[in-house]
Amino acid sequence: MNNANYNANDTADTVDRVLAGLRDIEAPAGIERRILASLQQPATAYTSSARSSITSPLLWLAATAATIVAVTIWWNASRRPTHDLAIHPPITAMPSAAAPQQAADVTVSASRARKAQHTAVATQTAKNSQPEPITRPVAAATSDTLAASHPAPPLPLTEQEQLLLRILHKGDPIELASLNNDFRDRQPIRDAEDFQRFFKPPTAPHSAEATVDDQTAQQNQPDIEAQPAPEPEPNDIPQQ
């Protein structure tokens, strides 16, 4: 029993210790600075391997980028023979008496010289150009920046612009006319004039007739009031 209690307590303590460890873990110092710095360089991937060993992956990536650019330049140069001669040292025909090994050595050394030259050019080009995208999502995100021209994407329409478009598509002439500032400003004046026209105050003859009618009504009223009260019914008189 005691052993079971001990195990139960021990288990609970261990679980609490694990959860406390997860809760109390501290973020590494400078995490905010690193994140902001990496966000300002969109083409730079920030992998855990880079953090653990910074120099070797960067060198590998730089070498990869330089190789790609070198191959591209070599490909373009190989398609232009005159330019090719200017860049590459001319490889003269070997004498027939020369050993094949010497020919191979010369070829290898010439190719190495070309490669070194290309690498130097490529390194310079790589330094001047934008950094190569490393990860696929980042490459996709930055592919637009490498395009020849890149207009900024249009901003979404504001609510007012959407309302305007709706009016234009609907084509209601009254709504279209209300877009005109002058028309809109004169609208209250027109409304006031319409109101005055509709509820026009009565003219003088109309007012004189109205006065006569009033007097007639007033004269009739006293006749009504002067009539004697009706005689009570015989049944209404209480009999003693």
């Binding site: 873990i25 973020a27 953090r51």
Partner: peptide, 17 residues
Amino acid sequence: LFRVAHSVLRSSAEAED
């Protein structure tokens, strides 16, 4: 966010990524 990620991954480097 680091603590949230670390609770799943249990690695500071992965969590920072």
